[in-house]
Amino acid sequence: MINFKADVLPLKNRLYRLALRITLHTGEAEDIVQETMIKVWAHRAELSGPQSAEAYSMTVCRNMALDYLARKESRHAALDDAAHEQADNAASPFQQMARQDGLMWVGRLFDQLPEKQRTVMQLRDIEGKPYKEIAAILGITEDQVKVTLFRARQRIKEQFEKISRYGL
């Protein structure tokens, strides 16, 4: 039996990050999380336990975010600045600024990836999910997840190499 407060509500931030990574819009992402939770709760009888509730929620959330993208052209805006944490206090103000810039740049790099690649990067490198779970959420095979992740990381690697050659 699924309990809303114990099993569904704690997924809110993970769902929000996924919706935000796909939609690149904070308000829209929050609405999507809300709609996802209502939908998951309405279908709770079909879920076998908290684990399947998480996978199902992530799938529903992604589909809703994709619907949003289909309805509206993605604006490819950068993620909220609020998302980025303060750098180490030990670093000098100049270093701090450079690190903040670096973080914003990486954020934009992530968001410029094709949707599938950035969703896989989000689920793997930020949420730390195993391939099996990512495959279940996206409805693809584990091999396809690995290939997508490989392409995404290669693209990011290329950008980092470009920077080290030509600078920001």
């Binding site: 809110k12 929050e30 999380v33 993620l79 740049w105 730390g128």
Partner: peptide
């Protein structure tokens, strides 16, 4: 030079919804 990438991956994990979200849902 790779610090921003892994630092970003760590900090992006901490992105949260506002406090009023629970009450709304």
């Amino acid at each position: 030079r790779l610090r921003p990438l892994f630092h970003y991956e760590s900090t992006a994990q901490e992105m949260c919804l506002g406090d009023d979200f629970d009450a709304k849902v």
